[in-house]
């Protein structure tokens, strides 16, 4: 579970649910594939995010998008080398973060010398 931390962004603390249900976990990832988060990786990412019950958000410098929407993910225009924070809120947040981080680590199964985009 390396790299996963509890986010403290000031949005917690209200409502009646328990801390465990409300906690937002986050983890920094790096876009490592040469072509960045273009259509295919964005599709893989949104598909993986939709498998989980938790809310999944991606945070770039000034932008926060829904990780379950390919359209939203594409609006990040995240190039190779971009650092993003993945945030997960919900009962399966930890597992979701592990699975999504793994996609970034595997470079979305892309290899730098691939000709097709």
């Amino acid at each position: 579970m390396s790299g996963i931390t509890t986010c403290d962004d000031g949005r917690d603390g209200s409502g009646g649910s328990t801390a465990a249900e409300r906690a937002t976990l986050c983890r920094e990832v790096v876009v490592a594939n040469a072509h960045g988060l273009h259509a295919r990786p964005a599709d893989l990412l949104a598909r993986e995010a939709r498998r989980w019950q938790s809310r999944i958000e991606l945070v770039a410098d000034a932008q926060r998008v829904d990780g379950k929407s390919i359209l939203e993910v594409l609006t990040l225009a995240a190039e190779a080398g971009t650092r993003l924070v993945v945030e997960a809120t919900g009962p399966d947040a930890g597992e979701a973060l592990e699975a999504i981080s793994r996609l970034f680590e595997l470079k979305f199964n892309e290899h730098d010398n691939e000709r097709n985009s």
Partner: peptide
């Protein structure tokens, strides 16, 4: 062009942002 992945990403960004 093969050597300009950034331009492709920015075009996709524009299209997807407008289509929301």
């Amino acid at each position: 062009p093969p050597d300009r992945p950034g331009d492709h990403l920015r075009a996709l960004e524009n299209i997807s942002r407008q289509l929301r």
